[in-house]
Computed example of a mutant assay.
Amino acid sequence: MGNISRLPGTAEHHWLWQEDAACRELGSRLFFHPVGERGPDSEERDAAAKEVCARCPVRRECLQHALEVQEPFGIWGGLTEQERRRLRAAGRGRKRSAVSASASA
């Protein structure tokens, strides 16, 4: 689980998007890899999970949640752990560039 201090709180409206998730009735096995899973098995499971995400009406909300809480495990919003880390790192790089550019102006 991500850092719980980043969770949006207990108010129901923070979580309502989950009711419309395409994965809601599928369980977690497809979205979270078992210990030691590597190679083709991992790639196949990830691809199957991403297919579910591709047709999900709340994909954007799911990904936003995972990024905000820095969810360290599983497929969220169609992205793996590594893909989300790269996305966050790219965002930090853009922020640093903008700060540097404004500081030198």
Rank of each mutant, 00 (worst) to 15 (best):
M1L: 10
N3R: 03
I4W: 09
S5M: 05
R6Y: 05
G9C: 01
T10N: 15
H13G: 06
H13V: 09
H14Q: 06
Q18V: 10
Q18Y: 03
E19I: 08
D20P: 01
D20N: 12
D20Y: 11
A21D: 03
A22I: 08
A22D: 04
A22Q: 04
C23T: 11
E25S: 15
S28I: 04
S28G: 11
S28L: 04
R29E: 15
F31Y: 07
F31T: 03
F32S: 08
F32A: 10
H33I: 12
H33Q: 13
P34G: 06
P34C: 08
P34S: 10
P34R: 15
G36Q: 08
E37P: 06
E37A: 06
G39E: 11
P40N: 10
S42E: 13
R45S: 03
D46P: 04
D46I: 02
D46T: 09
A47M: 09
A47K: 12
A47W: 09
A48W: 05
A48D: 03
K50H: 07
K50I: 02
E51L: 10
C53L: 00
A54Y: 05
P57A: 01
R59S: 14
R60H: 12
R60W: 10
E61Q: 13
E61G: 04
C62Q: 04
Q64M: 00
Q64C: 00
A66G: 02
A66L: 04
L67F: 02
L67K: 02
E68P: 02
E68G: 07
E68L: 07
Q70L: 04
P72F: 03
F73N: 13
F73Y: 15
I75A: 07
I75G: 04
G77F: 03
G78R: 03
G78Y: 00
T80P: 01
T80A: 00
Q82A: 14
Q82F: 05
E83L: 03
R84G: 00
R86S: 12
R86V: 05
R86L: 13
A89W: 07
A89H: 10
A90I: 02
G91Y: 00
G93I: 10
G93C: 11
R94W: 03
K95Y: 09
K95W: 07
K95M: 15
K95Q: 15
R96K: 13
R96G: 06
R96N: 06
R96W: 12
S97L: 15
A98Q: 15
A98C: 07
S100E: 15
S100C: 11
S102D: 14
A103I: 08
A105E: 15
